[in-house]
């Protein structure tokens, strides 16, 4: 069964959905796909998805709240901050804006948690921190998490959101693709499980490293998933791109994801997979 829906939003920016604050009563959100107006509590009860199937973008902590057992998340490596190794023009300001907008110190948060009673090391990327781009802090945290999970024989479950490698940190950002991949491989060689959940958007250097290296790859409906940017491809091939190009459904069709899962069924799917890999017996925390 495929939870597909017709995607109508014209561009990336529209996917967030507009929120409206009426003079009285509850805050409302307009779905960018079907243009329905949803009460915030109604959207919340559906884990920020619309009745039409549209998945709103959500923050990294909110996501971990939805996907892990209540009170089980214990943060790791939270003191690692983004740095500016090249003193890149304007990057300092961008970082302080990103910190203010997201409340985070880097584009990924992580720790240990239980998912349906199964222990796991988890990471969740934050779109409000420079669109989840991978700087040296991000790569370092991902690497530390895989090293931690390897040392404690834990599976890793990670939710990816990323515009790719962060250009303001130059070549060292690119090297994070190599570093994280090497850490994933070492974890994998211990016979440990890694599940990735691709969420909107997962692109560039993150797609070309740890996002695509899961033993099992899940994807949220309608998420943009790809390597090269759409505009770059259009300029290269000089033609309109096919409908539904670089979506979760597209990569499923072409064999690069195991399944497209609605956010509502996601936690149960993940905990079932963890259980089938010895989840509850494997209490390493």
């Amino acid at each position: 069964m495929l939870l597909s829906f017709e995607y109508k939003a014209k561009n990336e920016l529209e996917k967030d959905g507009r929120s409206t604050a009426p003079l009285y009563g509850e805050k409302e959100i307009v779905c960018p796909n079907c243009h329905r107006t949803l009460k915030e509590s109604e959207a919340e009860s559906r884990l920020m998805t619309c009745i039409c199937g549209h998945h709103f973008r959500i923050g990294a902590r909110k996501r971990l709240g939805y996907m892990t057992d209540e009170g089980s998340f214990s943060e790791l490596f939270g003191d690692i901050e983004a740095s500016d190794p090249l003193s890149f023009p304007g990057y300092g300001e961008k970082l302080s804006k990103a910190r203010d907008a997201s409340g985070e110190r880097e584009s990924v948060i992580m720790g240990t948690a239980m998912i349906g009673g199964c222990p796991a090391a988890v990471f969740s990327m934050e779109s409000l921190f420079m669109m989840g781009s991978m700087g040296t802090g991000t790569g370092e945290k991902i690497t530390l998490l895989f090293e931690y999970a390897r040392a404690h024989s834990l599976p890793v479950v990670g939710w990816t959101v990323s515009g790719g490698a962060r250009m303001q940190e130059g070549l060292l950002s690119l090297m994070q693709m190599a570093k994280t991949s090497a850490a994933v491989k070492r974890h994998s060689d211990r016979g440990l499980l890694y599940i990735t959940v691709l969420t909107d958007p997962t692109t560039g250097g993150v797609t070309a490293s740890f996002a695509m290296e899961g033993d099992i790859i899940l994807a949220e409906p309608g998420a943009t998933v790809g390597f090269a940017g759409k505009r770059v491809i259009e300029e290269t091939v000089r033609q309109k791109l096919p409908r539904g190009f670089q979506t979760s459904e597209f990569i499923l069709e072409h064999g690069f994801a195991d399944m497209v899962v609605s956010r509502i069924a996601e936690k149960e799917t993940i905990s079932s997979i963890l259980a089938l890999h010895g989840g509850k017996r494997n209490a390493g925390i």
């Binding site: 991949s181 070309a208 740890f210 290296e213 790809g226």
Partner: peptide, 9 residues
Amino acid sequence: GEAIARNLM
């Protein structure tokens, strides 16, 4: 993306 990621691993 998968092809590059696989090579790195």
